[in-house]
Every structure is written in C-alpha cells, then in structure tokens.
Write a protein that binds this DNA or RNA. Sequence first.
RNA 1: CGGGGCGUGGCGCAGCCUGGUAGCGCGCUGCCUUUGGGUGGCAGAGGUCCCCGGUUCGAAUCCGGGCGCCCCGACCA
Length: 469
Amino acid sequence: MPKSPIADPNEDYPRWYQDVIALAALADNGPVRGTMVIRPYGFAIWERIQADLDRRIKAAGAQNVYFPLLIPESYLQREAEHVEGFSPELAVVTIAGGKELAEPVVIRPTSETVFGEQMAKWVNSYRDLPLLLNQWANVLRWELRPRLFLRTSEFLWQEGHTVHASEADAAAYALRIHLDVYRDFLVEMLALPVLLGRKTAEERFAGATNTMTCEGITRDRKALQLATSHELGQNFARAFDITYTDESGQVETAWTTSWGASTRLVGGLIMGHGDARGLRLPPRIAPTQVAIVVVRDEDGAVEKARELGDAIAAAGARVEVDADTHTGFGRRAVDWELKGVPVRIDLGPRDLAAGEAPLVRRDTGEKRQAPLGDLPGLVPELLETIQSSMLAEATAFRDAATTDVADVEAALEAGREGVGRIEWARLGPEGERRLLDEGVSVRCIQRPDGTVPASEDEPDLLAIVARAY
RNA sequence: CGGGGCGUGGCGCAGCCUGGUAGCGCGCUGCCUUUGGGUGGCAGAGGUCCCCGGUUCGAAUCCGGGCGCCCCGACCA
C-alpha cells in the first residue's frame, strides 16, 4: 500500500476536496482573491465537458453568440428583483481611460440584461420566435466566500437566453434544456446521479418565476447545484420591452428563459467521485482513458508500449504512453491515480516475456492479468463497464445518504447528516426557514417519482433538504 | 462584518517565550545508484525573516503602528 499524499476523507471532509483538487494539479488560486487558474490537465477535463454540453445545446436548437463583458449599470436596475439579487456581488468599473465614467459599468455577473436589451431589437414578429441563444463566457460575482471550482468569483460557463411567444412554450423549452441537456449530460457523461426539481421561492434565481435545478451529492454528503434552468416569465421581457406582433397583428409581450452550467461541474466531478487517492474520472469525460506505463526501458518495452497504445487507440480509446522511465515506477503509478485516469496498463520486460500485462481499474483498484493481444478488444469494453459502475456506485452512495422523514426536526437531523426527504406540505416555508437557521436548505421540491413538478402546489410533493456548497 | 489563526528560500514549516553567524523537509541543478507502488548517496544553487518606526553594542526574536493572507459563519452557479 503506497503512502497516500491525500488526507483520509473520513477525517476531515472540508479539507479533503481542496487536497484532491490541489494534488491532482487541476487548478491554483488566482492572483485576485477568489479567482482561479486552471492548469492544462484541469482545462482538458473542462474542454471535454464544454464540447459535450455544446453539442447537446445545439441539438436542442440553440445557437452560439457572444455578448459584452461590460454592462451599463442602468441595465441591471431595470428589473427590481434582479438588481437586488446581484447588487452585493457586483464589480463596478467607475474609471476608464483615466477618467471617471458618466455611468458606471458593471462586469457581468450574468447576462440576462444585455441579452434582453439586444433581443428586444431582434424580435419583432411571431416569426422571429422562438429565439434560442447561448454564449460561452466568463462572469464575475464578488463572492464572500469563494471555494476553488465550486464557487470562484470569476467563472467560466455557458448561459442560454431564449425568447418565446407563450408561457407554455417557454416552460417547455426550459424543461427540455433541463432534462435533455443537463440531466442527460450529468448522468451519461459525468456518471453523477442528480436530484431534479424546482427551487422554492426562497432559493429562486433573482427575477425568475421558476427555477429548476439538478442537484448533485458530494462524497461528504452535501448537496451541490450542478445546473439550473429558469423561467423568467415576462419579467425581463417587460423590463427590456421584448414584444412581438402575433398572427392577428396584436403586439404581445414575450416570455423568456435562461439556463446555465459552469466550471463548477469540474468541482462536482471531483467531489462526486474522488477518493482518498485523488480523482476518479468516468471514462467518457477522462481526457486520457488509458495510461500505458512502461516499467523499464528494456527489451524494447517502449516500442512495444507504443504499438500497444496505437492498437488500443485504434479500438477507440484515448491512450497515453508513459515512457518517462527515469522517474520511478511507483511515483508514476501514483500520479496516474491522482489524475483519475480510469485504466492503467503496466508494461515491462516481465510482461513482454509472459505475453500478458496487469490491467488496473482506477475506480475499484482491481488488477488483473490480460494477454497483450486481447487488450485492444478488452479495453473499450472495460471503459464502458467502469462508466456504468461509477454511476451505479454514486447512485447507491446517494441513496444510502438519503433518509425519508416525517417532521421538521427529523428533516433537520437528516439534512445535517446527508439528504433528508420530507413531504413539502409538512415542511412548508416556515419549516424551510427553521432549517435555514441551522444551515440546512431545501435543495428542491420534486414529485414522488423524482420528476420536476409544474408548480409548487401539486399534491404529494417532496422536499429534498441538505447542507449545500 | 463577527469569531479564530498566520506572514521566515519555489512550496510546507521550525526558530520567537528566554535577543548573539537563519535552519529543516519537499522541490530544483549535477553526478552516481535504483527502477514491478512515492529508491538511496554525494555535491550544489536559492532568503530584503510582510512593511515602517522604536528599544539595544546587537532584533526573525522585545515594543508601537501599518499592510496582507488563511480558516469558521453570514451572501451565492
């Protein structure tokens, strides 16, 4: 058993994720409080997340655009709840070009307002609708308490902004994004089981009429909001005068939505799957899926490793050959574990002589001997096994952390320890505030079958309560 | 803003109480050794001890003032 450079997760969870992040060499703290420098390996993970999400967003019909970083302060002020929600965390530029600006500009905390202003110009007729836009951009929120990846002041995300002719159409589209883009991505790619539902009025996005969430569970049994979709009603359409002429010639106010997912997903991935030895990446998102570690450069092991690597790559896996033999084997083995690479193959003279090599799973640690010739056939299959096994493990973990309860005090207890599930009718806004006082929040309300309710007033709804990052 | 703590080679820290040549581990450079789970050895480079002022023959250490950072809580994707 090698010495683990990472703290025992059972000892001190709050420190643990920092260690996992830092030691796995994904990111550093930035030069300004709360900002973050993402290293090449961390960014490779993000790029795969971004590429897959982008593909799904386009499949849902949205187009990519790019909007300004700086927003006139007056834009924010047009929607009362929105300003109120974001004012405390705005960074405001008051001087530019050496002169005091007539009107300060804020660095975007989110772009509803600039999109609103512009979309009003682009929407004239019902024929222009729906208008489905998305942008990949960085935004800034001066957070009181930043945490690497989970809540940095500056973060990179995707924000979608859409305009619709009717409330029903807007609601349907927000839900479609929520399920087909976010939920499917989280489950299929990141192997993270998610709790779906609506936010309570207390937790809703500033300016939204409905906020939907995908809540993940971290290994320390806290909730983490991984993605959200908002129905904005006509709040922004009214504030920015987004109107259209309908088929009968009537001028109507439109309905808008917005939805986003950020670099927090990398944090969610780390927190959802990491263990005491570092990252564990689900194969579909892993930049490198297979590391072939050359033990010693003897008997042509390096060449053999490259040939094997090519053969496995040809079978469809992302392979890296580690021929850095002047670094000790143990150190390199630990490095690949830290980086969470799903499969490792050790190749040295002994294996070449025997014609078989150790095939090691990162998720379970399981090691088995496999004939070299079989590897190109075995590996892709093994990667899929790991992918589904990690989802099953995370799901079982979440279920084991979840307790059904029947009253507020029990919900508080369950929420402190993990996830509590209680009938929303029994909790209610008063119960919610009681929990909030103790650091436990209602993460979402959902139907008994786990689907997203159309309103808070449906019968039999359940509230999911937990501590949150 | 409330409560704790810390500023000493790149990183992590000791030294401070009781003033007297600035140390340790990791990392880095070179050579050798070892490579199958974080090898071992030899040699070496690298520091305005956060800043300003004071006390003193002498300050990383004592005194006064300032600045910065981290952790816990309140705000939040």
